[in-house]
C-alpha cells in the first residue's frame, strides 16, 4: 500500500510569487519523513504540492515532477481528485465537518465518493477509529456531532477520516500544534503505528517531535523574506540531529539562528 515519492526540480508559485524553488527529494515508503524549517520557508506549500492541493489556492501553480512510485502526479491527464484519494492529508487545525456526526465524519470520504453498504461502512469506521486511537473514547457517541469532541479528539477524528479512505501516503501539516502534550503523545504513538502501512510526511516546529517520530528529516530554509524557500538537506534523522552536513541546519536545530 505504501508508495515511494520522488520529487525532482519542483517550483511552486502563488500568482507570480515563487514560494519554493527547485526541490528534489525522495520519501521512502513505510517511513516517517519530517519537514523542519523556519516559518514561511514553504513547508506547507511543498506538502500541499504532494497531493495537488496547492492548486486549490487561487493563483497556485506548480512545475516540476512528483513521482508516486512510477506515476507523475503532474503528468498529462492525471486527475487531481484521484491523486488526493491516494495521498491523504491532515491539517494543522482540526476541521471535522460541523454538520456531521462522529460516524459520518469518518465515513465522509467513502460516502462522498460512492456507495457502500451499511455493514461495510460500520467495519471501516470502527477500524479507522481504532487506528486513530479514538475508538474507546467515542464508541458510545458515534451519532453525536463531531465538533463536540475536544481539540485533540477532533484531530484524531480527522486522522481517522483521512485513513478511512486507505490512502498510500499520509501528509500531516503540524498535526499537534494545537494540542496538549498528552494528545500530542497519542498522535505521535499513532504515527509510529501508521507507518507500518502508510508513507508519512509530517511538518513540525517541534525538534523533539521530529527526532522522536521520524526516520528521515528534511530541513528547509529561505535566504530572506520574499525569497523562495529551498531544501537545504535531507538525511537520516539521527544524522541531522547529531552531525548535519550543512552549518545552517546545525544552527537551526541548536537554536542559533537568525
Amino acid at each position: 500500500m505504501a508508495k515511494r515519492i520522488d520529487v525532482s526540480g519542483l517550483n511552486a508559485y502563488y500568482g507570480s510569487f515563487l514560494a519554493i524553488e527547485d526541490i528534489s527529494m525522495t520519501v521512502e515508503p513505510r517511513s516517517v519523513t519530517a519537514f523542519i524549517g523556519p516559518s514561511g520557508c514553504g513547508k506547507s506549500t511543498f506538502l500541499r504540492t504532494l497531493n495537488r492541493m496547492h492548486e486549490v489556492t487561487p493563483g497556485g501553480r506548480v512545475d516540476g515532477k512528483v513521482m508516486l512510485d512510477d506515476e507523475n502526479l503532474y503528468g498529462a491527464g492525471i486527475d487531481p481528485v484521484a491523486v488526493r484519494r491516494e495521498v491523504g492529508m491532515v491539517f494543522q487545525r482540526p476541521n471535522p465537518f460541523p454538520t456531521m456526526s462522529v460516524y459520518d465524519n469518518v465515513a465522509a470520504g467513502l460516502r462522498l465518493n460512492g456507495k457502500y453498504k451499511k455493514s461495510q461502512l460500520d467495519d471501516i469506521v470502527e477500524k479507522s477509529l481504532k487506528g486513530a486511537n479514538l475508538w474507546n473514547e467515542v464508541k458510545d457517541r458515534l451519532n453525536k456531532p463531531g465538533s463536540g469532541l475536544s481539540g485533540g479528539q477532533q484531530q484524531r477524528l480527522c486522522i481517522a477520516r483521512a485513513i478511512a479512505v486507505e490512502p498510500n501516503v499520509l501528509l500531516m501539516d503540524e498535526p499537534c500544534s494545537a494540542l496538549d502534550p498528552i494528545s500530542t503523545l497519542a498522535i505521535e504513538d499513532l504515527i509510529g503505528e501508521l507507518k507500518e502501512q502508510f508513507t508519512i510526511v509530517i511538518v513540525t516546529h517541534n525538534m523533539q517531535q521530529a527526532a522522536r517520530v521520524s526516520d528521515r528529516t528534511a530541513f528547509f530554509n529561505l535566504a530572506a523574506v520574499g525569497q523562495p524557500g529551498k531544501l537545504i538537506e535531507i538525511d537520516d534523522t539521527e544524522r541531522i540531529f547529531s552531525n548535519p552536513s550543512v552549518q545552517a541546519t546545525e544552527d537551526y536545530i541548536s537554536g542559533r539562528f537568525g
Binding site: V56, R84, M89, L112
Partner: peptide, 17 residues
C-alpha cells in the same frame, strides 16, 4: 470556512460533491 472545503477536497471528493 475554507478549511472545510479543503478537508473535503483532500479526501479525494470532487469539487461539485
Amino acid at each position: 470556512p475554507n478549511e472545510l472545503r479543503e478537508a473535503s477536497l483532500a479526501l479525494g471528493v470532487p469539487k461539485w460533491r
